[in-house]
Amino acid sequence: MSGFTPRITRRAFTIGSLLAAGTAGLPIMVKAQEGKTVALLFDSLVSPFWVTGIEIMREEAAKRGWETLEAISNFDDNRQFEQVRAMIEREVDGILIIQTDANAVIPAIREANAAGIPMVHFNRPPAESDAYSVAIQADNRAIMRETVQFLVDEAKRIGGTYKAAILIGDLGDVNAIQRRDGFFDIVDQNKDIIEVVSRISTEWNADKAFAGLTNALQANPDINFLVTSSDFLHPQIEQALKIAGKWNKRGEEGHVLFAGFDGDEGAYQRLLDGFLDACGVQNLFLEVDMAFGAFTDLWAGEKPEKLLLDPGFVITQDNLEETRDAMWGFSVWKNQQG
C-alpha cells in the first residue's frame, strides 16, 4: 500500500486544478459580492413608504456587505439622469432607481446598458423600450382588486346600496393607473349595490386630495364607500371626513367603508382604531429582497425577466393579528411606540 503511487493523467490533473481553483475562488466571489457598491437613486422620500424602503435597503445592503451611495432627485428627471451619469462615472456595481417618469428614465437605462452597469427599478417600471433593466413592482391591480373585493364583501354583509369615491394618484404614474383600474375591475362588477359618484384626481398632492374629497362630500353627502390609492393621504381624508361628521369607527352608525393602499404605519393605526376596514399592502421587505436578488443574478451573468411582481397582500380587520408582521407599516409603528 505504502509503495502505491497513484497515476495522475493530464485530464484528471486539469479537472482537479479547475475544481481546486473554483473552490478557492468561491470565497473570492463571495468577497467580491461583499465589496459591491450600489447606487440608490430615489426621486423623493415623500411618503413613509419610501422612507421605510430606503431604510430596509440600507439594512439589507449592510447585511450583504454592500456599500450604498444615495441621491434624491426631488422629482426632477433631468437631475436624476445626471445622477445616473455621476454614478456611472463612479463605476458603481449597480443602480437601483425610483424614477418619476416612466419614459424619461429610458435614456438613463441606455447609459447604464452602455456602461455595463445593471439597473433595477424599484416599485415603478419604465416604459416599454429595447433598453434592458429589471423592474420590481407590486402587482398593484391585483392587490387593489383584492382590497376592494373585501370592501364589497363587507358592503354585502352589511346590506344596502353604496355611493363610492376614489382618490386617484398622479395620472402619469403607472402605479396610480393600475390601482385605479383594480378599483374599477371590482366595482364595475357590483353596480347593483355600488355607484361611483366621485373620481378625485389628487396628483399625489395632499392639498388637492383634501379639497377634492371635501367637494365630493359636499356634492354627495351620502358617500359611504371610500378608497384611496395611497395611505399617505390618510391625514387629509381623516380631516375631510371629520369636517363632514363621517369619521366613525367600524360598527358605529355612519361608518364609511374605507380602504387604503401601501400599508404604512398610519394605516396600521387606523386599522387598529377601527376607522380603516382594509389595506392593500405592498410587501416592501420582499420587494427589497427581489431587487437585491436581481442584482446578484445580473452580476452572475443571468438575465432575469424585465418585470418581477410582488404579489402583496391585503390586511383587514379580520386578519390583522396574524398578518401584521409582514406589513412594513407595522414595524414602523412598533418602532414609534418604542
Binding site: S44, L45, V46, S47, N74, F75, W204, N205, A206, D207, A209, F210, F232, P235, Q236, E238, Q239
Partner: peptide, 17 residues
C-alpha cells in the same frame, strides 16, 4: 391656513402653487 386644513405637509407642499 393650508396646513390647518390638510394636517400634514409632504415635500410637494406648496409645489407649483
Amino acid at each position: 391656513v393650508s396646513i390647518a386644513q390638510v394636517a400634514a405637509a409632504s415635500s410637494t407642499f406648496g409645489f407649483q402653487i
